[in-house]
């Protein structure tokens, strides 16, 4: 699905990713954990092509294409989805309008026909129900006046509708209570079909109780310093990230 090789990236001249390597095959779920400031969110932004994130070196191949050479919308159309940590509001543009344009832009790029209003509505209703959002949210402005938890669920709703190949979840668990966490996790799990891949970025192990990863990577100071299976997350939960200090310096040397 995606091969990330020695990826280096900076923001405003400050290097954040310092040679990151990651290989994800179709159907795999990779969790990225790490302390604050390790570069977890940066990874999501760099992969999705956000302005202001300068790639300094390395390569990323996504479904056989050179990802770093593509525009933001082309990456999205190719099947890369980012669930935002802090989804922004777009006042006056209804969720429904927004998602219909979005779904159809992506369908057209895939060579499929645009959905009719009725077909789209059917899908949108189903997606809403899946993440336990009242249908009224389809008519409200994108994220306008949504609570933190509603915004997160709205992101998952969008993910379900867009049927991407690679989903990057950027701290989709932050600020959620246990019930909401379960709803988000169920939404994600429902999309695991053996082909779709996930990068689950999280600070806490908690989310991984609900979304079981195939691999867990610890990101510290812009590099993956340790990889393992789901048990690595449990280890982190017990010991915290303090032990990483020495490890990161070792890796730098």
């Amino acid at each position: 699905m995606i091969h990330i090789k020695d990826l280096r990236a900076s923001i405003e001249g400050k290097e954040i990713l310092k040679g990151l390597n990651l290989d994800i095959k179709p159907g795999e779920v990779h969790a990225i954990m790490g302390p604050n400031g390790a570069g977890k969110s940066t990874l999501g932004y760099v992969l999705s092509g956000r302005d202001g994130y300068e790639v300094e070196g390395g390569s990323v191949e996504f479904k056989g294409q050179d990802l770093l050479d593509m525009e933001v919308e082309d990456r999205a159309q190719a099947g890369l989805f980012l669930a935002f940590q802090y989804p922004v509001e777009i006042p006056g543009v209804s969720n429904m309008e927004f998602m219909k344009e979005s779904v159809n832009a992506i369908r057209l790029a895939r060579g499929e026909e645009a959905l009719s209003a009725t077909d789209f509505l059917k899908k949108a209703k189903a997606a809403c129900q899946q993440v336990d959002l009242p249908l009224a949210f389809l008519k409200r402005g994108v994220n306008e006046g949504f609570s933190g938890g509603e915004k997160k669920r709205n992101e998952i709703m969008q993910m379900i509708l867009l049927e991407p190949s690679l989903c990057i979840l950027d701290e989709s668990d932050s600020g959620l209570d246990v019930d909401a966490l379960q709803v988000v996790a169920n939404g994600v799990n429902s999309q695991r079909d053996g082909k779709r891949s996930f990068i689950v970025v999280t600070h806490y192990q908690r989310l991984l109780d609900y979304i079981e990863p195939d691999y867990v990577h610890i990101l510290a100071d812009g590099k993956i310093v340790k990889s393992g299976d789901a048990s690595l997350a449990k280890e982190v939960e017990k010991t915290g990230y303090a032990w990483l200090g020495a490890k990161a310096e070792e890796a730098d040397a």
Binding site: I90, E101, I106
Partner: peptide
């Protein structure tokens, strides 16, 4: 960025 990440030009 949100719009473009959702596939809109």
């Amino acid at each position: 960025f949100l719009c473009r990440q959702r596939g809109l030009n």
